[in-house]
């Protein structure tokens, strides 16, 4: 009974889903013994389940069955993720598309060379959520197509981890999975967390701060990977309808109840570009910060 029950901040840094991650949690002595390890297992399980690189992941299993003509039965969590992807595809008029990952095969941002248009056109044939046979809980991909949950599973993982910690009794904390953030609750003293938004031109510096006591924050940006060809900048965010990098916006940060929603809204805004994206996002009525590309010449 004499053991202090006051939670103490603990920070757990690790790498998951290809990004540096941090859990900031206020834990009691009792929670500190179990919660961080359990949270880590929770994220590892999600990573393993949806990784493109693991041979036994659900993603690999679905993709391996492409063109087999047979539907694959998926579990309820994957089914809900696929339903969500379908909803996001519809709401974005086809811009949020989890089949667009194949474009990465032809866009090599390290090479400094643009892919030929005919190759892009060929690849576009293998893109389009509407071509996927999704009859819950059975999924079947046409030959040559691939699914990639990478566009939103990290955001979903941030929410899952936060829910997990809440279930374990954690009431104050923040989950940061490579910039995809879900706040569990404010600091122990009730103060909000200060979340920095990266400056696209200098990603080590914050251009602004968001205060948050709960909910999700996510940022999409083209600054992480890009190449300059003939003086023009080509970012890594690719439009699945044209096969070309999107232009106009350098980064989009959205605050929403869930990190997943924040991430989806910022991704769609990024894909819609300028000015449509900005207009669309303002219509959502969620707090946001859009940083436009400072090179007006880059607007097609």
């Amino acid at each position: 009974m004499k053991i202090s029950r006051k939670p103490i901040i603990s920070v757990l840094s690790f790498k998951a889903m290809g990004s540096p991650c941090k859990l900031h949690l206020y834990l009691t002595q009792k929670q500190a013994k179990t919660v961080p390890q359990a949270a880590l297992s929770c994220i590892r399980a999600l990573e393993k389940k949806y990784s493109r690189y693991q041979s036994d992941s659900i993603t690999t299993t679905i993709n391996r069955g492409a063109g087999s003509g047979q539907g694959l039965r998926v579990d309820s969590e994957t089914a809900a993720l696929l339903d969500y992807a379908g909803e996001a595809f519809e709401q974005s008029d086809g811009l949020f598309d989890i089949t667009s990952g194949v474009l990465r095969r032809i866009w090599d941002f390290k090479s400094g060379v643009l892919p030929p248009q005919e190759k892009i056109t060929q690849t576009l044939d293998m893109i389009g959520w509407q071509k996927v046979r999704w009859r819950k809980p059975y999924i079947e991909l046409p030959k040559g197509m691939e699914l990639d949950f990478g566009g939103y599973v990290k955001e979903y993982a941030a929410d899952t981890l936060a829910s997990f910690c809440i279930e374990k009794g954690v009431r104050h904390g923040l989950v940061d999975l490579g910039g995809d953030i879900r706040v569990i609750g404010p600091h122990l003293n009730g103060k909000p967390w200060k979340i920095g938004i990266r400056n696209p031109d200098d990603p080590e510096k914050a251009v602004a701060h968001i205060d948050s006591t709960g909910g999700g924050v996510a940022t999409s940006g083209s600054y992480e990977r890009c190449m300059i060809v003939d003086g023009r900048r080509y970012g890594h965010v690719l439009n699945p309808l044209t096969g070309w990098p999107v232009r106009g916006l350098a980064s989009v940060t959205v605050q929403a109840d869930q990190c997943l929603i924040a991430g989806t809204l910022s991704t769609i805004t990024m894909l819609k570009g300028r000015p449509e994206g900005s207009v669309w996002l303002q219509g959502m009525g969620v707090p946001n910060l859009i940083i436009e590309e400072n090179d007006p010449g880059s607007e097609a």
């Binding site: 809900a80 969500y84 909803e87 709401q91 109840d257 929603i261 959502m284 009525g285």
Partner: peptide, 28 residues
């Protein structure tokens, strides 16, 4: 960044869909 009350139909649709996810819809 004040939170608005009236939400867009697209946001409602996405949220409804997201709430079907086990990691988001806390069982408790």
């Amino acid at each position: 960044m004040a939170k608005k009350c009236r939400q867009n139909a697209a946001l409602i649709a996405l949220t409804t869909s997201a709430l079907a996810l086990p990691g988001i819809n806390v069982k408790a």
